[in-house]
Design a protein around this nucleic acid. Sequence first.
DNA 1: TCACAAAAGATCGTATACAATCGCTGCCGC
DNA 2: GCGGCAGCGATTGTATACGATCTTTTGTGA
Lengths: 244, 244
Amino acid sequence: MDDAGHAGGGGDDRATARAADPIAADLIAAIHEHRVLPGMKLSEDEVGDIYGAGRTVVRQALRALAHEGLVTIERNRGAFVAKPSVREAREVFEARALLEPTMARVAAGRCGHTDLARLERHIADEHAALAAGAQGRALMLSGHFHVEIACISGQVTIEAFIRQLVARSALVIALYWRRQTAMCEKHAHHALVDAMRCQDGAAAEELMKGHLVDLLSLLDLREGPVGPVSLRDALAAPPASPAR
Amino acid sequence: MDDAGHAGGGGDDRATARAADPIAADLIAAIHEHRVLPGMKLSEDEVGDIYGAGRTVVRQALRALAHEGLVTIERNRGAFVAKPSVREAREVFEARALLEPTMARVAAGRCGHTDLARLERHIADEHAALAAGAQGRALMLSGHFHVEIACISGQVTIEAFIRQLVARSALVIALYWRRQTAMCEKHAHHALVDAMRCQDGAAAEELMKGHLVDLLSLLDLREGPVGPVSLRDALAAPPASPAR
DNA sequence: TCACAAAAGATCGTATACAATCGCTGCCGC
DNA sequence: GCGGCAGCGATTGTATACGATCTTTTGTGA
C-alpha cells in the first residue's frame, strides 16, 4: 500500500474523495464560509442546475455530507443543511476538546519550519480576510488552522474526525454565536504557533484546551433563530464565473 | 421551520441511516464477523445479485462504507474491503486509546442498572458465542461492547467515531492478529463492568486504557498475508437462503 | 524468449426515465 | 368558521441504459 506516500498525511482516501467530488467540497466550503446557513434546503435539482451536474452526482455529494452530519436528508422531503441542536453543539465542542489538545501536543513535537511557515501564512491569510471584511472566509481559514495542526500531528484518522468536527462547528457557530468578533482567536492561534515553534508540547496542549473552552464559552446555547434564505444567492458560479 | 425538530441528539441520523440501509449494515456485520476479509472484492453487480437489489442502492452502501474507511473504491476497478496499512492500524488503536478511556470514565458516572444489565448480557452472549465456536460473532460482540460503553456515555458524536474505529479494528485484527485467543478480553470487559458498577470512573478509565494497550500489543505489525477468497461464500443468504 | 502493442472484456461513472411518496391547496361538509 | 378529505404538484427513491476508462490477454515482432 501507499504507506509513506504523501508527506503530511495519508488521508488519501478522504482527500481524493474531496478532490473527486468538487461539489461536495464546494458545499463544505460554503458551509465553512456561512454562505449557506443551517436549515437551508438543498434541492437536488437546484444544486444540480447550479453546478451544471446531473442529479446523480449531486445525490452522492449530499449523501456524503449527510454522513458527516453536515446535512440531514429526510425521506421524500429533501436535503437540508444540518441544524445542530444545542446538545449536538455541545457534543461537537466536547469532542474537539477531547481530541485537539492532544493533537496540538503531538504536532508541537513534530512540526518543522515548513509547517510553521504554513501555519503563519494561514494566520496571515485569516487576518487579511478579516481586514477585508470577508468574515466568512476568515472563519473558514480559522477552522482550517485547526485541521492543519491535526495534519501536522500525522494522525490522519483523527485528522479526519477533526475535519468533520470543524465543519460542524461552522454550523454551530452560525446558529449560536453571540457576536461575530473573531478577534480573540487570532491571539490564541498565534500563541499556539509560538508554543509549537518552541516545541513546547505541554504549552500547546494547554493553549488548545483553553482556546476551545473560550470558543465554547462564546456560544449562546439557547435556541437561536435561523434564516433559511434562498440558495442561488449563496452558491454562486460553480463552473466558470468571475464572482467574488 | 422545525426548530426544535430533531431533539434527542444527532445520533438519529446515523442510526436511521443504518436502519434504512440494510445492505450496508449487513456488510458491516460481515466485516465484524470476519465473514469478509480485507482485500476481498465487492463487485457492485455481485453484491446487488446477492441482496436482490439494484446497483444504485449497492453503490450507496459501498460509498458509505468507503467513507468510513471500511472499503476502498478504486476508479473503474471496483470496491474492495479495506486493507489497513500498518500505520493505519496503529492510528486506529491510538485514536481509540485517546477516545475510549474518557468515554469509559464518563459512562461510569452515568450508567444505571439497566445499562449494567445490558453490558453483562453482552458479555454473556460473547462468552456463549466463543464457547459455541462462533469466533466471528464473539468478535463482533466484543466490538459492540465498546460501542455500548460509548453509547452509555451519552456522547453520540464520539460514539459514532468509536463505532467507526471499532469496525476498522475488525479489519486490523483480521490482518495483524497473532492468535485468535480472545480470552484476555473477557477478563478485561468484566473488570470494566465491575468498575462501572462501583461508579469508579478513574478505575474504568485506567482499565480501558490498559485494555486497549493490551489489544494493540497483541497485534503483529508486520505485513500479514491476506486471503481474498470468493464472495458468495462469505455473504450468504440475504433474502432467502438456507446457509448457516 | 521477451517485450511491446493493440484489441477485447469488464467494471465503474453518469445521465435519463419511471415510480412511489409526501406536502399542499382547494373544496366540501359539519 | 372550522375541521377533514381528496386531488394535484413537486420532490425524492430506484432501476435501467449508455459511455468512458482501465485491466487483461493475446498476438506479433525483434
